[in-house]
Design a protein around this nucleic acid. Structure first.
Length: 886
DNA sequence: GTCACTACA
DNA sequence: TACACTGTAGTGACA
């Protein structure tokens, strides 16, 4: 089936220009309109898969329409030079893509398109017209659809005759009559005064056309009749102006409009010249990408698997040196408690399925030795989890070289589907069924029979082998090889070691804390019921809201989607009104400690080791941070004393040892000082000043002695805001001030730290141009919504653009420090163990004789993890438990 | 499963 | 315009 796409070049380029933020390439050329246009082109090509294309442009200022009406298109503002310089670029780009374009003096793009649709229609071809001009709807027919742009040019709304009927109650040709009556201010077409869209539609529904309306003015009355009679000629002329001329001598044959997919050899240099990096990557010619004519994903093929038994184990053993990929399947969310289902081992030509009960046998020692050999490089999926699952089964795993899940995370940390099934689809490989499909989910989960399980794992292994080279290419292309092979892969082993080690918990002390909390909680509950005059579930926000707002009549400060808000912020404001509020706040605090930190933690203590073994997830946070689960040891209370006590139960696992903790001081602001190059901020850190006091001095223009506690507090909030991608609203909420005051603060901050202002402006521009931002170690995060027309989406992406390089670079640095620290412990033959990472803090357990060296070695290693233009500082302390190591 | 809430950096 | 500062995990209520 042949399909022609015709594009009104002028209409689209104008819309693209006004809907996109200004954008220039490094030589100062304006490119925003071309960018928007190209973006739309790519989408059209991908979604519509046209066989023929042509872009029509207006040529010259004067058209045949001016002959009859001098004022046609009068009153328009002059085209800005930033836009007019983009027309030649756009034509050049079309040529480089292999897309035909056409213009002819005296005619508008509309007329050229009208002519070509007529010809194509007569030849029985299917046509899609893309424009921002509603007039074009007049050419719609069964074969010709018109897509009108919405929201700039990012979305289009296609119309066929039925849709025009539904929306206007008109036939396509009546669109001309509509315009004749209502006119068009943008083209300076007068129409009839006093008649807008509504009236015009009413008249047309009644009479059908301009001529018929004018012939029946006697049936009308009032001002409308008068206007129609007096402006009958205007109406006729307006209709004529709005009529698309469909007999333009267009010298383009059907063959000349043929589109054979984007021509890579010429398109790539053009996109490079324009510096459209994100588009270049999106098209990814090598991987098939979006170019037309792309092959459909291959069909799922049958896969042969060798089931390994005692009898044929020797075949596998002989083939071990050829194994290229490993899939170890297990179920259960917590890898420390997961159950292994089976293992697939694959060479380029053969898949083996090795059941766990075979692997366990005495006679499979060679296979186990192979798994444990760190000199045998292993490629697989989620090897961090594999390591843990095998470990708890008593099987050692080492030598992870390429983890496909981890690589996928680096290539796009926000991709929610990291499964092999999803990756196979992304790389256009033969489809791999999802795990849920094969195993069922929730209550329906079932381990399948060995035949089905082995086939599924082999399919995954097959996809794995095909994905590996593609990921290597991608990692090289994005200069992420060091990040992957020298940082994240080594770190994944270190994390597994930390998790296996676990952290010892003083169970008795924890239970005692629980008893203490329980006593306080029950007192509070009694008191709250007394004051409320009834019993209710304080944990239920619904019931609590009813008591506070309906029964006690307290003022409603804030509402949630589903009812009254009762969060801490609201309760703080309500505290002066009623004594019950304070008790509820205290109850909430203690209930959280009891349920999450006492009861929750007790449940996570391993009966085998008496420790908690958290699971650090390396592929979750979009910024590159780690996350921690089962239990989360990255959110153990510290701010309030009651909660901080929880830290007393985290103790060394050996008699007489110590807990040592070291945390980076202001790592994020130091990173900001480095990447922004702001002299004031750099100076502060070079002299190791109190950064919030220094900020207060510069923002308020006072000396160090004049900074009071309140000024410092404000400065601190501004510093936090800066790191998060500041907004006046966010700061105003934080400091409980008006938005205006907050905006003034921010302005003063940027006046004092102009390098920071420049960084924030530049990084947002960069994100808009490239579609992603990067950290110091080339970690990247895509921000597809950075050019969205929706204010919220766009603002969120802009703040993310500001925050991610900061938070992400800080994550890079502490990860580097962990890898270095692991090396140092090994090099010095130390018995000390790294236990935890809490974003800017590392926690160790240390034997007494190493306390001295570790107190020096840890902050030193952290301090020189990465050299910045300002010093990195880490502070260390130690004690008998985590509470004391503060 | 989603929401509201709260804990951390 | 609308409506809002980064990144996470866990719990209890309620559908």
């Amino acid at each position: 089936m042949e399909k022609l796409i015709l594009i009104d070049g002028n209409s689209i380029i104008y819309r693209a220009f006004f809907s996109m933020p200004p954008l220039t390439n490094s030589s100062g050329l304006h490119t925003n309109a071309v960018y928007g246009f190209t973006n739309m082109l790519l989408r059209l090509i991908q979604e519509e898969r046209p066989t023929h294309m042509l872009v029509a442009f207006d040529a010259g200022k004067v058209t045949f329409r001016h002959e009859g009406y001098q004022e046609y298109k009068g009153g328009r503002d002059k085209t800005p030079s930033e836009l007019s310089e983009q027309f030649p670029l756009m034509r050049e780009l079309l040529e480089s893509f292999g897309i035909a374009w056409f213009e002819l003096a005296g005619y508008e793009a509309d007329d050229i398109i009208g002519t070509l649709t007529k010809r194509a229609e007569e030849a029985g071809q299917e046509v899609l017209v893309v424009t921002g001009d509603k007039d074009m709807l007049q050419v719609v027919s069964d074969r010709v659809k018109v897509a009108l742009t919405r929201k700039g040019v990012s979305e289009v709304e296609p119309y066929d005759p039925q849709q025009i009927e539904e929306k206007y109650g008109l036939k396509p040709l009546q669109i001309i009559d509509l315009k004749g009556l209502m006119g068009d201010t943008s083209d300076n077409i007068p129409g009839v005064p006093g008649i807008g869209e509504k009236t015009a539609l009413k008249l047309l529904h009644q009479f059908g056309s301009v001529e018929e309306v004018l012939a029946h003015t006697d049936e009308l009355k009032g001002k409308m009749k008068e206007n129609l009679v007096n402006h009958a000629d205007d109406a006729r002329m307006s209709k004529q102006l709005a009529t698309i001329f469909r007999e333009v001598p267009v010298e383009r044959s059907w063959e000349e409009m043929k589109f054979d997919g984007i021509q890579e050899e010429s398109a790539v240099p053009m996109l490079r010249k324009l510096e459209f990096k994100s588009l270049l990557e999106r098209m990814s010619f090598a991987g098939g990408g979006n170019a037309a004519g792309e092959a459909a994903p291959a069909e799922q093929v049958e896969i042969e698997v060798t089931m390994v038994t005692q009898d044929n184990l020797s075949e596998l053993i002989a083939d071990l040196s050829n194994i290229e990929g490993i899939i170890v399947e297990s179920y259960g969310d917590n890898p420390h408690q997961a159950t292994m289902m089976g293992m697939a081992l694959s060479t380029a030509s053969r898949h083996y399925y090795l059941p766990f009960d075979v692997l366990q046998e005495e006679y499979a020692a060679e296979a186990r030795a192979w798994l444990a050999d760190e000199h045998v490089p292993k490629r697989g999926y989620d090897l961090h989890r594999v390591d843990l699952v095998l470990f708890w089964q008593g099987i050692a795993f080492a030598g992870a070289e390429h983890d496909v899940q981890l690589a996928a995370y680096l290539l796009d940390p926000t991709e929610s589907d990291q499964t092999l099934s999803g990756l196979a689809a992304k790389y256009h490989l033969s489809p791999v069924p999802g795990d849920d499909e094969v195993y069922g989910k929730g209550a329906k989960f079932k381990v399948p029979e060995p035949e089905e399980l082995s086939r599924h794992l082999a399919r995954k292994a097959d996809a794995l082998l095909r994905i590996l080279p593609l990921q290597r290419q991608d990692l090289a292309k994005y200069e992420m090889e060091r990040l992957f092979y020298d940082l994240e892969m080594p770190l994944s082993r270190i994390l597994a070691d930390m998790e296996k080690q676990g952290v010892a918990v003083n169970k008795e002390a924890l239970k005692e804390l629980g008893v203490e909390f329980e006593a306080q909680i029950s007192k509070l509950v009694t008191r709250i019921y007394e004051i409320a005059g009834q019993e209710f579930n304080i944990n239920s926000t619904k019931q609590l809201g009813e008591i506070l707002f309906d029964k006690l009549g307290l003022p409603v400060i804030k509402k949630t989607k589903t009812g009254y808000s009762t969060d801490a912020e609201v309760l703080e404001k309500l505290a002066p009104y009623h004594e019950i509020v304070q008790f509820i706040l205290e109850y909430r605090q203690l209930a959280k400690l009891q349920s999450t930190y006492v009861e929750g933690l007790l449940k996570e203590i391993s009966p085998k080791t008496g420790k908690v073994h958290t699971y650090f997830r390396q592929t979750i946070a979009a910024t590159g941070r780690l996350s921690s689960q089962y239990p989360n040891l990255q959110n153990i209370p510290i701010r309030l004393e009651e909660g901080r006590k929880i830290r007393k139960v985290f103790v060394p696992s050996e008699e007489g040892w110590f807990i040592l903790a070291a945390d980076y001081s202001q790592i994020e602001l130091r990173v900001l000082a480095h990447i922004s190059g702001d002299p004031g901020l750099q100076e502060a850190f070079l002299h190791d000043m109190d950064i919030h006091t220094k900020t207060a001095m510069d923002v308020f223009g006072v000396g160090p002695d004049q900074v009071d506690a309140n000024m410092r507090r404000s400065a601190k909030a501004v510093n936090f805001g800066i790191v998060y991608g500041i907004s006046d609203y966010g700061l105003s909420q934080n400091l409980n001030i008006t938005r205006k005051e907050a905006a003034r603060f921010i302005d003063q901050y940027f006046d004092a730290f102009q390098g920071v202002r420049r960084y924030m402006d530049d990084i947002v521009k960069e994100a808009k141009r490239d579609g992603y931002v990067k950290t110091l170690l080339e970690r990247r995060r895509y921000l597809p919504e950075i050019n969205a027309s929706n204010f919220n989406l766009r603002s969120f992406a802009e703040r993310t653009a500001m925050n991610t390089p900061i938070q992400g670079s800080a994550a890079d640095i502490i990860k580097l420090a962990m890898v270095r620290m692991d090396e140092e412990l090994y090099k010095h033959g130390l018995k000390s163990r790294m236990l935890l990472q809490v974003h800017d803090e590392l926690v160790f357990e240390v034997p007494p004789e190493e306390l001295e060296i570790m107190s020096k070695l840890v902050p030193e290693t952290m301090g020189k993890a990465l050299e910045l233009s300002v010093p990195l500082k880490a502070e260390v302390s130690s004690g008998l438990n985590w509470y004391e190591a503060k």
